[in-house]
Amino acid sequence: KQVQVGDEKYTFDTPEEARKFAEKVAKEKNLKVTEKNGNFHVE
């Protein structure tokens, strides 16, 4: 599963790991997490 933050992409083995990372980054940057096709976008 992938997490996209701006132009950066991070790959994780499980959706749970990806979601945790996305939520942590979103909180730090005051952004929101959206899920698209099983991948997460922080925007």
Rank of each mutant, 00 (worst) to 15 (best):
N37S: 05
V5Q: 02
E43R: 07
E17G: 05
D13N: 10
R19I: 08
N30T: 04
V42M: 04
E43K: 07
L31R: 07
T14F: 03
R19K: 12
V25I: 14
E28H: 06
G38E: 05
T34A: 08
E35L: 13
N30V: 04
Q2E: 12
T11M: 12
A22I: 04
T14P: 00
N37C: 13
K1E: 03
D13S: 10
E23R: 00
D13E: 12
E35F: 09
V5I: 13
K20V: 07
V33Y: 06
G6Q: 06
K24H: 11
Y10G: 01
A18Q: 01
G38L: 03
P15G: 09
P15K: 12
A26E: 03
E16F: 03
A22Y: 03
K36Q: 11
Y10V: 04
F21A: 06
E8G: 04
D7M: 09
V42C: 04
L31Y: 07
F40M: 07
G38R: 00
K32T: 13
F12T: 01
K27L: 13
E35P: 04
E17H: 02
E8P: 03
E16W: 02
V25A: 06
N39G: 11
V3D: 01
V33S: 04
Q4N: 11
T11V: 13
F21C: 10
F21G: 06
V33T: 03
K20R: 13
N39F: 08
D7R: 09
R19G: 06
K1I: 15
K20E: 14
K20M: 10
E16H: 05
D13T: 08
A18G: 02
E23I: 00
Q2T: 15
G6M: 08
K36H: 13
K9T: 14
A26F: 01
F21K: 04
Q4P: 01
Y10W: 10
N30I: 03
N37Q: 04
K36C: 15
K36P: 03
F12Y: 02
N30W: 05
E16I: 05
E43G: 14
T14I: 02
N37A: 03
E28V: 07
K9E: 08
K24M: 13
Q4V: 15
V33F: 09
E23N: 03
V25P: 00
E23S: 00
T34P: 04
D13A: 11
T11G: 06
F40L: 13
R19M: 09
E35Y: 09
H41I: 15
K24I: 10
T34W: 08
A22S: 00
E16Q: 08
E23F: 02
F40Y: 11
K1L: 12
G38D: 06
K20N: 12
K1A: 15
A18N: 04
V25S: 03
K29M: 13
K9S: 12
K36E: 11
V25F: 05
E28L: 05
F21T: 05
E35V: 14
E8A: 11
T14R: 00
E8N: 12
K20C: 12
Q4G: 04
V5Y: 10
A26L: 04
E43Y: 10
E16T: 06
E17Q: 10
A18M: 01
N37E: 10
G38W: 00
A26W: 00
E23P: 00
K27G: 09
E16D: 11
V33K: 03
P15Y: 15
F40E: 05
A22V: 04
V42Y: 02
G38N: 06
E28S: 08
A22P: 05
K32N: 09
V33A: 05
G6L: 09
T34M: 11
V25D: 02
N30C: 12
F12W: 01
K1Q: 09
